[in-house]
Write a protein that binds this DNA or RNA. Structure first.
Length: 258
DNA sequence: ATGTCGACGAATCGTCGA
């Protein structure tokens, strides 16, 4: 069974990319982020034609997440974990899987702009709230995958310039501590269950020819619960869609479950 | 610091967010 996560940076613009990718990629479940559209505009017909059931949690202009699956999505929840923040950043659903039902979530974490800004403080609060939601969700669903754009590069190996960028967004000790707290709930960073090539990233800035120079960050992640981690067979990043015309700035990450 | 994108409103660019 193959699952994946992809920040498409506007589904309106990237639907053709998504269709092309799905046509050549045997994924069973896909978590999407940054739809940048309302649920009314979500392309259910096109995705049904591609063979997928879908549930979206969209909003105008910004944010927006979705889950796609070849089998029906059950018990869909659209979650705003942080009091006072109604942005569409988290959706969860249950899907059938070989080893039993699987709870999957697609998350678009607050970006945070820069340490010291109000938006960074918002990010810290949202991360706290996400932690508490995940703790509860794990109590309800032993077999759980949290997939999405975390906007955190958890280790030095996850940044092309860990020293120079140490005090910038996605790199700060506070953000890394939040990532560690999520792992401490019993989650495994699926990508790091395996030996990986150096310079493995999921996001490259559109500016400064960052992709060509592989100046990226690994900020998109798939976390597997304790019960599920032993079934993870592989975790990879597909850089190919980042080479296409008018690409998303993020590449998809895939995980294979036994 | 930012050379790039994308959405939006009210322009055919400025502003915000990433």
């Amino acid at each position: 069974m193959q699952l994946a996560t992809w920040n498409v940076n506007s589904l309106g613009v990237r639907l053709p990319h998504l269709q092309q990718w799905l046509a050549q990629q045997p994924v069973d479940v896909l978590a999407l982020q940054e739809l940048k559209m309302t649920d009314e505009k979500f392309p259910h017909d096109e995705l049904r034609a591609a063979g997928f059931h879908a549930a979206s949690f969209g909003q105008k202009s910004y944010n927006g997440v979705a889950l796609l699956a070849r089998t029906p999505l059950r018990d869909v929840e659209r979650i705003t974990p942080c009091d006072g923040d109604d942005s569409a950043r988290l959706i969860a659903a249950t899907v059938d899987a070989p080893g039993g039902a699987l709870r999957v979530a697609s998350a678009y974490f607050v970006n945070g702009q820069a340490p010291g800004t109000e938006k960074f403080d918002d990010k810290m609060r949202w991360l706290d709230a996400l932690h508490d939601w995940l703790q509860g969700e794990l109590a309800r669903h032993e077999r759980l995958l949290l997939m999405g754009d975390f906007n955190i590069a958890p280790q030095d190996a996850d940044s092309h310039a860990p020293a120079a960028l140490a005090h910038t967004v996605c790199h700060t000790p506070q953000e890394k501590a939040h990532f560690a707290r999520l792992l401490a709930l019993g989650m495994a960073d699926a990508f790091r269950l395996f030996d990986q090539p150096a310079g493995s990233y999921t996001w490259w800035d559109y500016r400064q020819a960052s992709f060509r120079r592989n100046q990226g960050l690994r900020i998109d992640h798939i976390l597997a619960s304790r019960a599920l981690a032993p079934q993870v067979r592989a975790c990879t990043i597909d850089r190919i869609p980042r080479t296409w015309e008018r690409p998303s700035d993020h590449a998809p990450m895939l995980v294979e479950l036994a």
